[in-house]
Amino acid sequence: MLEILELRKRYGDKTALDGLSFAVRPGEVFGFVGQNGAGKTTTMRIVLGVLAADAGEVRWQGRPMDAAARRRTGYMPEERGLYPKMRVRDQLVYLARLHGLPADRAEASTDALLEQLGIADRGADKVEALSLGNQQRVQLAAALVHEPDLLVLDEPFSGLDPVGVDVLAAALRARVDTGVPVVFSSHQLELVERLCDSVGIIKDGRMVAAGGVDELRSRGGVRRLRVAVDAPAGWADGLPGVRVATGAAPDGAVVLELAPDVDDQAVLDAARRAGRVREFRPVARSLVDLFREAVAA
């Protein structure tokens, strides 16, 4: 388990991290979201030891994270980093060995990853000769090649086409299934929603919401209904405990937010009284909604 405890970091007058805490369990994918400058990259750099925290602690398997634990961590920095003029395969073998893998295992692991990520035919090319998408695959391979026990990935999917996203996601999932915890940051919230078991929303260096994706969605007990009725707009105004959350969609549907004590069947009755009901279904709050709310709060 990875535990981030009360991290604090200042750059001059600017507070980057203000007592940030969260934990990632084995086999869990933790999505780290927040606006630019919220402190995601700073947190990841501190976990990897390339930046020092002013206060707080990072713990791995119950002990303070040390150099040996970091060597067993796969890291993909926000600013991609590979030797542009080094051959892909040589580079991955080198990085695996720097993380302590013996030569034969480093080579086997490299070849397996190149195969898995669909770039086996590019092993002898220099990194700079690859397309940006393929360079990104190599970058992920660099984070995975030493068979890490923990993965920390800063924006791993940015700039990838949907096929690339699928390939990378599958490679990640394969690691997660062996019990490796993954922390990754992303601006692509629907991707986070799809891939993550739990999510942390960070704002101004503090965690403003964290937990399982489903748990967060249902937090506060607010239910949402999407209702389409052949009736003039405004039919739902004034219903007790009901708020119209959106304007009418092109098909005339509206999204209603129900207070916890409101019976959805009563709302359905009201709708039927207003006109013919074409659609009536609960909608889950998306991560985008959660994010907007959390950031706006």
């Binding site: 990897l48 030891g49 390339v50 060597r71 890291y75 920095p77 600013e79 980093g81 590979l82 030797y83």
Partner: peptide, 17 residues
């Protein structure tokens, strides 16, 4: 400078001193 400008130094220093 090559290691700094390509940022590979961040990957390297996560594992070696």
């Amino acid at each position: 400078v090559e290691e700094k400008s390509s940022r590979v130094v961040e990957v390297l220093l996560a594992t070696v001193s």
